[in-house]
Write a protein that binds this DNA or RNA. Structure first.
Length: 279
DNA sequence: AATACTACCTGCGTGC
DNA sequence: TGCACGCAGGTAGTAT
């Protein structure tokens, strides 16, 4: 489900609802959701832990516990719901964290792609998935100079390059299409053919679009009641994602959709022109 | 090392 | 209605 703005919105919701809660028990209905340790140890180690804080790095949530860091990735469709223990357990619920006050944090995931990992306290940065991440998409962390140097070295199309999280973290299929549109760059333009000017614009638009989406509480596409972080309204600000067949907000041309690196890709054929041999 | 493709899952809409 | 197929906000593993 989520890209950085949605995960950040979930983080804020969790901070509000479960910070300070003590874990009394854990129920696991789909053990593969637990990447490590094995689901039995995962449960045993969590009992008695208190949720001290909830951090985020890229699209990962990091629950800071008494003796552990619990890393959570929602992948495509993972979501958290906060419930009373007496509430009926809905379909697609795979993990339940039961608190000492008889409330529960439930993890639901239709496609079961999401993962949990438990590591010793303050060692989350060693986890492989977090280690590979590039800088957060902020002015302070994401530097134009480094971005430009990396792009010069890569010849793969810019869209899949931005999706791999190593140059900058947080973009997914929605915001990468929005960033490229706003910067006027074709999604298949090879990274090493981008001009200095285009790179600077792209850098600025990535930071801007993700920042605006965080402010809006993320984008809500499919609505699921009760899920933390589903109240975002950035979908009203999307300029190309899901807009195929509509008019380009800049020039009026028809927004097209095509496959790029196995992902549905939305773009304006007039504002985002592919050019051969540049840079 | 960089790149490309596939697996992991379920549900929904479309077309025959 | 039934069924096959493509598609969905992501990443890790494998092969080249």
């Amino acid at each position: 489900m989520p890209e950085l703005p949605e995960v950040e919105t979930v983080r804020k919701g969790l901070e509000h609802l479960v910070k300070g809660k003590k874990i009394k028990d854990v129920a696991i209905f789909w053990p593969k959701i637990i990447e490590s340790p094995n689901s039995e140890d995962f449960k045993t180690q969590l009992v008695g832990e208190e949720i001290l804080d909830i951090d985020r790095r890229g699209k990962y949530l990091i629950f800071k516990l008494t003796h552990f860091d619990m890393i959570s990735h929602l992948r495509m469709e993972g979501k958290f719901e906060y419930h009373k223990g007496s509430d009926p357990v809905m379909k697609h619920t795979h993990v339940i964290f039961k608190f000492s006050d008889e409330t529960e944090l439930r993890y639901l995931d239709v496609r079961k792609f999401g993962r949990f990992v438990l590591v010793p306290k303050d060692t989350s940065q060693i986890y492989k998935g977090l280690q590979k991440l590039g800088p957060e998409p902020t002015e302070e962390a994401f530097l134009l100079k480094g971005f430009e140097q990396e792009l010069k070295k890569r010849k793969k199309p810019i869209k899949p390059l931005l999706l791999d999280q190593t140059l900058v973290t947080g973009l997914g299929n929605i915001y990468v299409d929005e960033s490229l549109f706003r910067a006027g760059i074709h999604p298949e333009q090879e990274a090493n053919t981008l001009t200095k000017k285009e790179i600077a614009l792209l850098h600025r638009e990535i930071i801007a679009v993700l920042g605006e989406a965080v402010e809006a509480g993320g984008t809500t596409i499919r609505t699921y009641q009760n899920a933390l972080g589903d109240a975002g309204n950035f979908q009203v600000s999307l300029m190309v994602y899901g807009q195929n067949g509509e008019s380009c907000p800049k020039c009026g041309a028809e927004i097209l959709k095509k496959k790029v690196a196995q992902r549905g890709t939305h773009y304006c054929p007039h504002c985002q022109i592919y050019r051969v041999r540049r840079g």
